[in-house]
Computed example of a mutant assay.
Amino acid sequence: MRVLVIEDDRELGAEVAGGLRSVGYAVDLAETLADADLKLSVNGYDCLVLDRLLPDGDGLSLLRRRRAAGERVPVLMLTALDAVTDKVAGFSEGADDYLVKPFAFAELSARVSALCRRAEHPLQAIVKIDDLELDVSRKRVRRGGVLLSLGAKEFAVLELLVVRAGQVVSRTEIIEHCWDEPDDPLSTVVDAVIAQLRRKLGPPIMIDTVRGAGYLIEANPPS
């Protein structure tokens, strides 16, 4: 899952981005509305964390424009403006959630997770494919009832493949959803993560390679 944090306080932005990365999200940062517009024009995001009081305007103006253009990416307003009228304005312009500063990171993480799950068609809290069980909220994976130890990137890639079960997911799509701009890995890094996932998931292999296209987990694998 890839998140864009739009926050002009560099220390707070870095703290939020670092925290979200530690629990498996790919995170990009923008300090202005202009920078956010640029990133939104070239990247796809599963959630936006949007401050209101930015150097070049109110975050609500970005939200208003994006909603008017038909974009439905979930948006969490993260702001010090705590009056009821401010919250009503946020929801009226199309915000999906509203969190007031100061805040507990655990709550922010839970709210971002809920918005990302809601956006994915929606994705259930626990997803099962054959003997694979993915607990999205707890970031846990079991296969054949055995709890597996996955790294943050491994879980993120597996989650994307499970969300898109039955569809081929290209290396480019995996990079866009599971890595952020500072990482910008080569496709060989994706291959390495897939290899690690296959090793940890064990036989029979669930992640198929579609030559020249990407990777696939069958929605209903043959028995």
Rank of each mutant, 00 (worst) to 15 (best):
K128A: 14
G94H: 09
R164K: 15
L160Y: 05
R143I: 12
V73Y: 09
V162C: 06
A68K: 15
L134Y: 03
I129K: 09
L158D: 00
V84P: 05
L115I: 02
L158M: 03
R111S: 07
R142W: 12
V136Q: 03
E107H: 09
L81V: 03
V112E: 00
K87S: 03
F91E: 02
A68V: 08
L63Y: 03
D58I: 03
S92N: 14
K128F: 06
V141R: 01
R138D: 06
F91N: 09
A165R: 15
I175Y: 08
L160G: 02
T85S: 15
L76F: 00
A125W: 03
R65I: 07
F105Y: 11
V127W: 07
R118F: 09
V146K: 15
R72H: 09
D131I: 09
A152E: 15
L132Q: 09
V146H: 13
E159V: 07
W179G: 04
D82F: 10
V162R: 01
V73Q: 11
R111W: 05
V141M: 04
L78T: 00
R72K: 14
S137T: 11
L63M: 04
T79R: 00
L53C: 09
L161I: 07
L108P: 01
R67W: 12
S61Y: 01
L81R: 15
I175G: 05
H121E: 14
L60K: 00
L78H: 03
D56I: 12
R64M: 11
V127P: 06
F103T: 01
R72Y: 08
K87E: 13
P55D: 10
V169R: 05
L78K: 01
D131G: 07
V141C: 01
D58R: 13
A69G: 10
K101I: 04
L78E: 01
R65E: 13
L62N: 01
L150H: 00
D135I: 02
V168E: 05
A119P: 04
L150P: 00
D183M: 12
T85R: 12
L160H: 06
A83T: 14
V162S: 06
A83D: 14
P74I: 04
D82N: 13
E71T: 07
V169Q: 03
A106G: 01
G144R: 15
C116L: 13
V112M: 02
V136Y: 11
Q167Y: 11
A89C: 03
L53S: 13
A156E: 03
V162F: 05
Y98V: 02
I174Q: 01
G144F: 11
R67M: 11
P182V: 10
G57R: 06
S61E: 15
A110T: 10
R111I: 02
P182Y: 13
T79V: 07
R171T: 12
L63W: 01
E154D: 08
A156H: 04
V136G: 00
P182A: 09
R118I: 02
Y98D: 08
E120N: 11
R67T: 06
L147D: 13
V127C: 08
L123N: 07
L54C: 02
R72W: 11
Q124Y: 08
K128S: 13
V141L: 03
R140S: 09
L134A: 06
